[in-house]
Amino acid sequence: MRHSIRIAVGPVQFRIGSDWAGPVAALGHLYAGYPQDDTRPADATVRLYANRPWRRWLRPSVHIGGDYIVPDALPLPLSMGLLAAEMGMNLQVALGWRRHLLLHASAVARDDRSVILSGASGSGKSTLAALLGESGWRLMGDEFTLIDPASGDALAFPRAVSLKNEAIAEVEARVGPARLGPLLAGTPKGDIRHLIPRADAVAAMHEPVRPALLLFPQFGGAPAIERIGQGEAFVRLTEASTNYIALGEAGFAALTRLVRETPAFTIAYPDSATGMSLVEQLWALAPR
C-alpha cells in the first residue's frame, strides 16, 4: 500500500497500510513513544483503503480491511481516518488473537496487581481507566485486557485511549495538549479524542500483572457497590470476551480461574471523581 506504519501494542505487532498519508501520520504522532522494532514480523495486518480509485480524492472515504473484516461495515470520511485505523486494529485483535483470553475491559495496575473494569460502551470504563492512569495507577489499556491462560496473569494492551464526548474535557483539564490527538468531531461514536498513555505505562506494557479486582462499572445513579458471585462474574465476562468460545477448554479454564481468584463487584457512580474514589475504596479492602 502507498503508506504504512508498524505499531506494537502489548503483545501484538500491527502493520497498518493506508491509501492516504493522513491516517498514517496521525498514528505516527500517537504512537511515536512506543517501542519500535522494524525487523519484527507483523501479527496482524490492517488496511485503510479507497473502494474505488477515484474515492482517494473525490469525497474520500476510508474502508476498513485487514486479515479479518466485518462484511458491510460502513466506511468513514477521511477526516476520521484515525478512528478507522483504531477500529481496524481492534477488529484484528478481537477476531484474530488466540494467545490470550481477550476481555473487552479496561485495566489499571498498582504494585503488580491489577483492577479490571468490564462494561458495555457508555459504562465509563475507558474514562475511569484514563483518569486513574493520571492519578498514580499504571494504565494497562482502555479497550482490551488479555488473560494469559497459562499463568492467569493480566497483560496490558495500552493503545492510545479513545476518549469520547464528556470524557474529553475531563482529561483535557489534566494533561497537556502534547499527549492528545486531534479532536474528531461528530463521528458515529460521538466526539473522539485520543490520549497518549504516560511513557511509564508504555514502557511497562510487557509486564504481566496479577488480577486483584474485577469491577463492572455503571455510569449514572447514586454511588453503590455490590459484591457479585463467581457465577455472575463468569457469565458477564463470557459476554465481554471476543474469543472465549474460540479458545475452547483453555478459555473456560482461564475464565473460571479468574473469577475464582478475583473478587468481583458492580459499582454505580454519578461522576468520575466518585467512581475513582469507589475504586480506591475497594482497592484498600482487596485481599493481598
Binding site: R40, P41, D43, R98, R99, A246, L247, G248, E249, A250
Partner: peptide
Amino acid sequence: LPEPVARLLADARAAADVATAQ
C-alpha cells in the same frame, strides 16, 4: 523461525486443534 512467527504459528495450530474438535 523468528520468535514472533514461531509463536503466532503455535497459536494458529492450537486454535485449529480447538476448531477441529468443535
